[in-house]
Nucleic acid binder design. Structure first.
Length: 318
DNA sequence: AACTTTTACAACCGCATCATT
DNA sequence: AAATGATGCGGTTGTAAAAGT
């Protein structure tokens, strides 16, 4: 015995709402307030399912809804929250004033998800993925530019580190259970530990190094994704290293080969999103009315760059 | 200009969860 | 404690508009 349907669908209208229906619904809700959706259609004189009325109100007619394109800041917030919360669209929308879960979900599926994929970022794990990289452009860039260097092991090291952090977030018990093995993946030497060197948000604070086992994920704070156990700070700049002696590199927008298995990057670049500052990164990126906003954002996303080293055997990829 | 394909978004549907009886 | 009802959530679909051929 299944559940009774939310309403008797016979004779009920479906499809796009007419202005007249919108008016009836708006007038009714403004007088009586939202709620009692099952009985609302009859009282409001609408031939619609109560569920449909609720959806129309919450996603379209509500007076506090913000319409129009998502700003850079909103997009960045969505990506940050999605990396922590996953497809919890309602929770994400709750942190974006005036935006609905449906709107956020649609924007993710039609814009952000595709762009992340194009830039070699897995939209589910938010980690760089080799199988998403455009291999042809990858190879042509390697063949045409003497400066282009790919260090496949570095890419793998980066993916490993980010995957481990994701794993720790999602399955802390399993992560801790396998931590010794995980730490050895990056380097066979048991003396080396996979470490995370962090640059705190405030410049006055000295960078510190933690092992992954010490890192704690932060629930959607909007400020960062992990916190140091003994420090109150959040941070947005991490360096993964299999070698505790590796120094912290200074640039935090690009992935750079520092040494061996270490990687230096910011979470912003990892997420392939624009940097937090609303100021464009270079003078040619000033906003021009009429230009494609997606293209602008695409150019920011290209900050995720890979350098190609000499001596890479491309046959490994083919 | 006509047709096809792609894109964006509103709306629907089924299920989960919480509240009430 | 179980049954039922109300609401919310997330995946999916339908369709109009835009872009491409």
């Amino acid at each position: 015995m299944g559940r009774t349907p939310c309403c008797d669908k016979t004779g009920l209208k479906k499809g796009p709402w007419t202005p007249e229906e919108d008016l009836k619904l708006s007038n009714y809700v403004q007088i009586h307030g939202p709620g009692n959706w099952r009985t609302l259609p009859k009282k409001a004189g609408l031939e619609r399912c109560g569920k449909s009325c609720r959806l129309r109100w919450t996603n379209y007619l509500r007076p506090d809804i913000k319409r129009g394109r998502f700003s850079f800041e909103e997009e960045e917030t969505i990506i940050q929250l999605h990396s922590v919360l996953g497809n919890k669209w309602s929770a994400i929308a709750g942190r974006l004033p005036g935006r609905t879960d449906n709107e956020v979900k649609n924007y993710w599926n039609t814009h952000i998800r595709k762009r992340l994929l194009r830039n070699g970022i897995d939209p589910v794990t938010h980690a760089p993925r080799l199988d998403f990289l455009d291999l042809s452009s990858f190879l042509s860039s390697a063949l045409c530019s003497s400066q282009s260097l790919v260090n496949a092991s570095n890419l793998l090291g980066l993916g490993l580190a980010t995957t481990l952090l994701s794993l720790k977030q999602e399955n802390p018990e399993i992560f801790l259970q396998h931590l010794p093995q995980n730490q050895q993946l990056c380097n066979n030497s048991q003396e080396n530990q996979l470490q995370v060197q962090v640059q705190p948000s405030t410049s006055a604070t000295v960078p510190c190094t933690y092992t992954l086992s010490q890192m704690e994920p932060i629930e959607a704070s909007g400020e960062g994704f992990f916190c140091c156990p003994n420090a109150q700070e959040t941070f947005d700049h991490v360096q993964f290293s299999a070698n505790p002696t590796v120094p912290v590199a200074s640039e935090n927008s690009n992935i750079r080969s520092v040494d061996g298995c270490s990687q230096n990057f910011s979470l912003d670049s990892l997420r392939s999103t624009p940097v937090s500052s609303p100021t464009p990164l270079n003078s040619s990126s000033t906003f021009i009315n009429g230009s494609s906003l997606d293209d602008e954002r695409e150019s920011f996303s290209s900050l995720l760059k890979f350098e190609i080293p000499d001596g890479l055997d491309f046959s490994e990829f083919l």
